[in-house]
Write a protein that binds this DNA or RNA. Structure first.
Lengths: 141, 141
DNA sequence: CGGCATCCTAGTTGATACTG
DNA sequence: CAGTATCAACTAGGATGCCG
Protein backbone atom coordinates (compact mmCIF):
# COMPACT_ATOMS: atom_id res chain seq x y z
CA UNK A 1 0.00 0.00 0.00
CA UNK A 2 1.95 2.97 1.13
CA UNK A 3 1.30 4.84 -2.00
CA UNK A 4 4.03 7.23 -1.12
CA UNK A 5 6.31 7.33 -4.06
CA UNK A 6 5.47 5.66 -7.24
CA UNK A 7 7.71 3.41 -9.21
CA UNK A 8 11.37 4.22 -8.56
CA UNK A 9 12.34 3.15 -12.04
CA UNK A 10 10.11 5.75 -13.62
CA UNK A 11 11.88 9.00 -14.41
CA UNK A 12 9.41 11.07 -12.46
CA UNK A 13 7.49 12.49 -15.35
CA UNK A 14 4.63 10.15 -14.84
CA UNK A 15 1.36 10.11 -13.11
CA UNK A 16 1.30 13.12 -10.98
CA UNK A 17 1.99 15.57 -13.74
CA UNK A 18 -0.18 13.69 -16.10
CA UNK A 19 -3.08 13.25 -13.86
CA UNK A 20 -4.88 16.24 -15.17
CA UNK A 21 -4.32 16.08 -18.86
CA UNK A 22 -4.13 12.42 -19.09
CA UNK A 23 -6.40 11.56 -16.28
CA UNK A 24 -8.76 13.87 -17.96
CA UNK A 25 -10.33 12.07 -20.80
CA UNK A 26 -11.16 8.58 -21.87
CA UNK A 27 -7.78 7.20 -20.97
CA UNK A 28 -7.11 4.43 -18.50
CA UNK A 29 -6.08 6.90 -15.86
CA UNK A 30 -9.14 8.89 -16.59
CA UNK A 31 -11.29 5.88 -15.92
CA UNK A 32 -9.51 5.20 -12.66
CA UNK A 33 -10.10 8.72 -11.45
CA UNK A 34 -13.69 8.68 -12.59
CA UNK A 35 -14.29 5.38 -10.84
CA UNK A 36 -13.06 6.65 -7.52
CA UNK A 37 -14.84 9.94 -7.88
CA UNK A 38 -18.06 8.23 -8.73
CA UNK A 39 -17.69 6.21 -5.58
CA UNK A 40 -16.70 8.83 -3.05
CA UNK A 41 -18.63 11.52 -4.84
CA UNK A 42 -21.96 9.84 -4.41
CA UNK A 43 -24.31 10.67 -1.64
CA UNK A 44 -23.45 8.04 0.94
CA UNK A 45 -20.19 6.18 0.34
CA UNK A 46 -17.95 8.63 2.11
CA UNK A 47 -20.30 8.67 5.07
CA UNK A 48 -20.23 4.91 5.26
CA UNK A 49 -16.48 4.52 5.12
CA UNK A 50 -16.18 7.41 7.53
CA UNK A 51 -18.40 5.59 9.99
CA UNK A 52 -16.33 2.45 9.58
CA UNK A 53 -13.09 4.33 9.99
CA UNK A 54 -12.28 3.02 13.43
CA UNK A 55 -14.73 0.33 14.38
CA UNK A 56 -16.40 -2.40 12.47
CA UNK A 57 -20.18 -2.03 12.42
CA UNK A 58 -23.36 -3.95 11.88
CA UNK A 59 -25.93 -3.04 9.28
CA UNK A 60 -28.41 -1.44 11.63
CA UNK A 61 -25.67 0.31 13.49
CA UNK A 62 -24.59 1.97 10.29
CA UNK A 63 -28.13 2.97 9.59
CA UNK A 64 -28.40 4.61 12.98
CA UNK A 65 -25.15 6.46 12.55
CA UNK A 66 -26.02 7.82 9.15
CA UNK A 67 -29.24 9.77 9.52
CA UNK A 68 -31.37 9.91 6.44
CA UNK A 69 -30.01 6.90 4.60
CA UNK A 70 -32.56 4.41 3.39
CA UNK A 71 -32.19 0.67 3.71
CA UNK A 72 -31.95 0.41 -0.01
CA UNK A 73 -29.17 2.95 -0.37
CA UNK A 74 -27.22 1.56 2.54
CA UNK A 75 -27.36 -1.87 0.99
CA UNK A 76 -26.39 -0.64 -2.44
CA UNK A 77 -23.57 1.48 -1.08
CA UNK A 78 -22.18 -1.35 1.00
CA UNK A 79 -22.29 -3.70 -1.97
CA UNK A 80 -20.35 -1.34 -4.17
CA UNK A 81 -17.76 -0.64 -1.52
CA UNK A 82 -17.41 -4.33 -0.96
CA UNK A 83 -17.07 -5.00 -4.66
CA UNK A 84 -14.32 -2.42 -4.93
CA UNK A 85 -12.46 -4.01 -2.05
CA UNK A 86 -12.82 -1.04 0.26
CA UNK A 87 -14.79 -2.87 2.93
CA UNK A 88 -15.40 -6.47 3.93
CA UNK A 89 -18.69 -8.09 4.77
CA UNK A 90 -18.77 -10.83 7.39
CA UNK A 91 -21.84 -12.92 8.03
CA UNK A 92 -21.96 -14.65 11.40
CA UNK A 93 -24.02 -17.81 11.40
CA UNK A 94 -26.26 -16.95 14.31
CA UNK A 95 -29.87 -16.38 15.07
CA UNK A 96 -30.77 -13.65 14.66
CA UNK A 97 -28.28 -13.04 11.86
CA UNK A 98 -25.38 -10.72 12.46
CA UNK A 99 -23.51 -9.05 9.63
CA UNK A 100 -20.49 -6.89 10.20
CA UNK A 101 -18.76 -4.48 7.89
CA UNK A 102 -15.18 -3.44 8.24
CA UNK A 103 -12.81 -1.18 6.38
CA UNK A 104 -10.05 -2.94 4.45
CA UNK A 105 -6.52 -1.60 4.39
CA UNK A 106 -7.23 -0.33 0.91
CA UNK A 107 -10.20 1.54 2.24
CA UNK A 108 -8.00 2.86 5.00
CA UNK A 109 -5.59 4.44 2.55
CA UNK A 110 -8.44 6.03 0.65
CA UNK A 111 -10.03 7.60 3.64
CA UNK A 112 -6.88 9.53 4.41
CA UNK A 113 -7.28 11.50 1.22
CA UNK A 114 -11.01 11.78 1.58
CA UNK A 115 -10.52 13.22 5.04
CA UNK A 116 -7.99 15.71 3.76
CA UNK A 117 -10.57 16.84 1.27
CA UNK A 118 -13.26 17.01 3.91
CA UNK A 119 -10.92 19.01 6.06
CA UNK A 120 -10.30 21.44 3.25
CA UNK A 121 -14.03 21.77 2.76
CA UNK A 122 -14.59 22.68 6.37
CA UNK A 123 -11.76 25.15 6.50
CA UNK A 124 -12.67 26.90 3.30
CA UNK A 125 -16.41 26.93 3.56
CA UNK A 126 -16.50 30.54 4.72
CA UNK A 127 -14.61 31.64 1.64
CA UNK A 128 -16.83 29.64 -0.65
CA UNK A 129 -19.92 30.97 1.04
CA UNK A 130 -18.65 34.50 0.71
CA UNK A 131 -17.82 33.96 -2.94
CA UNK A 132 -21.36 32.74 -3.54
CA UNK A 133 -22.91 35.72 -1.88
CA UNK A 134 -20.72 38.04 -3.89
CA UNK A 135 -21.52 36.22 -7.10
CA UNK A 136 -25.23 36.17 -6.47
CA UNK A 137 -25.34 39.86 -5.69
CA UNK A 138 -23.56 40.87 -8.88
CA UNK A 139 -25.37 38.41 -11.08
CA UNK A 140 -28.91 39.40 -10.35
CA UNK A 141 -31.19 36.63 -9.38
CA UNK B 1 -22.20 9.44 18.65
CA UNK B 2 -24.04 12.61 18.19
CA UNK B 3 -22.42 14.61 20.86
CA UNK B 4 -24.16 17.42 19.19
CA UNK B 5 -22.57 20.17 21.08
CA UNK B 6 -22.09 22.52 18.23
CA UNK B 7 -20.40 25.79 18.93
CA UNK B 8 -19.93 28.20 16.07
CA UNK B 9 -16.92 29.66 17.80
CA UNK B 10 -14.70 26.64 17.79
CA UNK B 11 -13.19 26.23 14.41
CA UNK B 12 -9.77 24.71 14.42
CA UNK B 13 -9.01 22.14 17.06
CA UNK B 14 -11.98 20.00 16.38
CA UNK B 15 -12.35 19.33 12.76
CA UNK B 16 -10.03 16.63 11.76
CA UNK B 17 -11.19 14.02 14.19
CA UNK B 18 -14.75 15.05 13.86
CA UNK B 19 -14.88 15.19 10.18
CA UNK B 20 -16.35 11.79 9.86
CA UNK B 21 -18.87 11.67 12.58
CA UNK B 22 -19.69 15.23 12.53
CA UNK B 23 -19.03 15.99 8.95
CA UNK B 24 -21.29 13.11 8.34
CA UNK B 25 -24.79 14.21 8.80
CA UNK B 26 -26.88 17.30 8.47
CA UNK B 27 -24.49 19.47 10.40
CA UNK B 28 -22.78 22.57 9.15
CA UNK B 29 -19.61 20.65 8.53
CA UNK B 30 -21.59 18.03 6.79
CA UNK B 31 -22.95 20.60 4.43
CA UNK B 32 -19.49 21.93 3.72
CA UNK B 33 -18.22 18.49 2.85
CA UNK B 34 -21.25 17.74 0.74
CA UNK B 35 -20.88 21.00 -1.12
CA UNK B 36 -17.32 20.32 -2.09
CA UNK B 37 -18.03 16.73 -2.95
CA UNK B 38 -20.94 17.72 -5.10
CA UNK B 39 -18.66 20.06 -6.96
CA UNK B 40 -15.58 17.91 -7.51
CA UNK B 41 -17.63 14.74 -7.64
CA UNK B 42 -19.59 15.81 -10.65
CA UNK B 43 -18.70 14.77 -14.11
CA UNK B 44 -16.66 17.71 -15.31
CA UNK B 45 -15.54 20.10 -12.58
CA UNK B 46 -12.36 18.30 -11.68
CA UNK B 47 -11.42 18.05 -15.33
CA UNK B 48 -11.95 21.75 -15.77
CA UNK B 49 -9.90 22.88 -12.79
CA UNK B 50 -7.29 20.33 -13.75
CA UNK B 51 -7.02 21.88 -17.17
CA UNK B 52 -6.72 25.32 -15.62
CA UNK B 53 -4.13 24.13 -13.16
CA UNK B 54 -1.19 25.90 -14.76
CA UNK B 55 -2.42 28.15 -17.52
CA UNK B 56 -5.43 30.30 -17.93
CA UNK B 57 -7.60 29.19 -20.81
CA UNK B 58 -10.28 30.40 -23.17
CA UNK B 59 -13.65 28.77 -23.50
CA UNK B 60 -12.94 26.91 -26.72
CA UNK B 61 -9.54 25.91 -25.52
CA UNK B 62 -11.11 24.21 -22.55
CA UNK B 63 -13.55 22.49 -24.80
CA UNK B 64 -10.73 21.14 -26.91
CA UNK B 65 -8.80 19.92 -23.90
CA UNK B 66 -11.77 18.14 -22.38
CA UNK B 67 -13.00 15.65 -24.94
CA UNK B 68 -16.64 14.84 -24.71
CA UNK B 69 -17.84 17.87 -22.82
CA UNK B 70 -20.75 19.70 -24.37
CA UNK B 71 -20.97 23.46 -24.69
CA UNK B 72 -23.80 23.46 -22.26
CA UNK B 73 -22.02 21.46 -19.57
CA UNK B 74 -18.82 23.44 -19.95
CA UNK B 75 -20.77 26.64 -19.44
CA UNK B 76 -22.67 25.32 -16.45
CA UNK B 77 -19.55 23.90 -14.85
CA UNK B 78 -17.62 27.11 -15.31
CA UNK B 79 -20.45 29.14 -13.81
CA UNK B 80 -20.59 27.00 -10.71
CA UNK B 81 -16.84 27.05 -10.22
CA UNK B 82 -16.88 30.79 -10.66
CA UNK B 83 -19.70 31.18 -8.19
CA UNK B 84 -17.80 29.16 -5.61
CA UNK B 85 -14.75 31.34 -6.07
CA UNK B 86 -12.60 28.58 -7.50
CA UNK B 87 -12.02 30.20 -10.86
CA UNK B 88 -12.29 33.69 -12.32
CA UNK B 89 -13.88 34.71 -15.57
CA UNK B 90 -12.40 37.61 -17.51
CA UNK B 91 -14.13 39.10 -20.52
CA UNK B 92 -11.93 41.07 -22.88
CA UNK B 93 -13.77 43.74 -24.80
CA UNK B 94 -12.67 42.71 -28.25
CA UNK B 95 -14.11 41.48 -31.46
CA UNK B 96 -14.40 38.60 -31.64
CA UNK B 97 -14.99 38.24 -27.91
CA UNK B 98 -12.32 36.64 -25.78
CA UNK B 99 -13.11 35.15 -22.40
CA UNK B 100 -10.46 33.68 -20.18
CA UNK B 101 -10.80 31.45 -17.17
CA UNK B 102 -8.20 31.18 -14.47
CA UNK B 103 -7.84 29.26 -11.25
CA UNK B 104 -8.03 31.35 -8.10
CA UNK B 105 -5.73 30.73 -5.17
CA UNK B 106 -8.63 29.03 -3.44
CA UNK B 107 -9.00 26.76 -6.41
CA UNK B 108 -5.28 26.15 -6.29
CA UNK B 109 -5.44 24.85 -2.75
CA UNK B 110 -8.31 22.56 -3.61
CA UNK B 111 -6.64 20.99 -6.56
CA UNK B 112 -3.79 19.79 -4.40
CA UNK B 113 -6.14 17.48 -2.56
CA UNK B 114 -8.05 16.55 -5.65
CA UNK B 115 -4.81 15.54 -7.29
CA UNK B 116 -3.80 13.47 -4.31
CA UNK B 117 -7.05 11.63 -4.66
CA UNK B 118 -6.58 11.21 -8.39
CA UNK B 119 -3.12 9.91 -7.72
CA UNK B 120 -4.47 7.40 -5.27
CA UNK B 121 -7.02 6.32 -7.83
CA UNK B 122 -4.38 5.67 -10.45
CA UNK B 123 -2.10 3.81 -8.10
CA UNK B 124 -4.79 1.60 -6.63
CA UNK B 125 -6.83 0.92 -9.69
CA UNK B 126 -5.25 -2.51 -10.18
CA UNK B 127 -6.31 -3.53 -6.69
CA UNK B 128 -9.81 -2.22 -7.20
CA UNK B 129 -10.06 -3.93 -10.54
CA UNK B 130 -8.88 -7.17 -9.00
CA UNK B 131 -11.35 -6.85 -6.17
CA UNK B 132 -14.15 -6.40 -8.66
CA UNK B 133 -13.18 -9.44 -10.65
CA UNK B 134 -13.00 -11.48 -7.48
CA UNK B 135 -16.34 -10.17 -6.29
CA UNK B 136 -18.05 -10.77 -9.59
CA UNK B 137 -16.79 -14.30 -9.82
CA UNK B 138 -18.02 -15.28 -6.38
CA UNK B 139 -21.30 -13.46 -6.69
CA UNK B 140 -22.51 -15.09 -9.85
CA UNK B 141 -23.82 -12.78 -12.47
C1' DC C 1 -31.95 -8.66 11.61
C1' DG C 2 -30.58 -7.81 7.14
C1' DG C 3 -31.74 -7.78 3.28
C1' DC C 4 -33.91 -7.87 -2.08
C1' DA C 5 -37.64 -6.52 -5.69
C1' DT C 6 -40.64 -3.08 -7.52
C1' DC C 7 -42.35 1.28 -8.61
C1' DC C 8 -41.78 6.06 -9.20
C1' DT C 9 -40.10 10.88 -9.11
C1' DA C 10 -36.79 14.60 -9.35
C1' DG C 11 -32.61 16.08 -10.78
C1' DT C 12 -28.70 15.70 -14.13
C1' DT C 13 -26.85 15.36 -18.68
C1' DG C 14 -26.70 15.42 -23.79
C1' DA C 15 -28.23 16.84 -28.50
C1' DT C 16 -29.72 20.36 -31.11
C1' DA C 17 -30.73 24.87 -32.62
C1' DC C 18 -30.35 29.73 -32.23
C1' DT C 19 -27.76 34.50 -30.89
C1' DG C 20 -24.89 38.86 -29.44
C1' DC D 1 -16.23 33.14 -30.17
C1' DA D 2 -18.88 32.24 -26.40
C1' DG D 3 -22.54 31.53 -25.11
C1' DT D 4 -28.35 30.72 -24.24
C1' DA D 5 -32.69 28.01 -24.81
C1' DT D 6 -35.34 23.95 -25.34
C1' DC D 7 -36.28 19.34 -25.22
C1' DA D 8 -35.42 14.35 -24.65
C1' DA D 9 -32.92 10.54 -22.20
C1' DC D 10 -31.00 8.65 -18.32
C1' DT D 11 -30.38 7.61 -13.60
C1' DA D 12 -29.69 8.17 -8.66
C1' DG D 13 -32.34 7.98 -4.96
C1' DG D 14 -36.67 7.42 -1.94
C1' DA D 15 -40.98 4.75 -0.57
C1' DT D 16 -42.94 0.56 0.04
C1' DG D 17 -43.68 -4.36 0.60
C1' DC D 18 -42.07 -9.09 1.11
C1' DC D 19 -38.62 -12.78 2.73
C1' DG D 20 -34.93 -16.02 4.88
Amino acid sequence: MASTRRDPSEPATTDYERTCEDGAAGTEHGRAVRDVLDRIGDKWSLLVIGTLRHERRRFTELQRHIPGISQRMLTLTLRQLERDGLITRTVHAEVPPRVEYELTSLGGTLIVHAMALAHWAIENRPQIEAARVAYDSTHAR
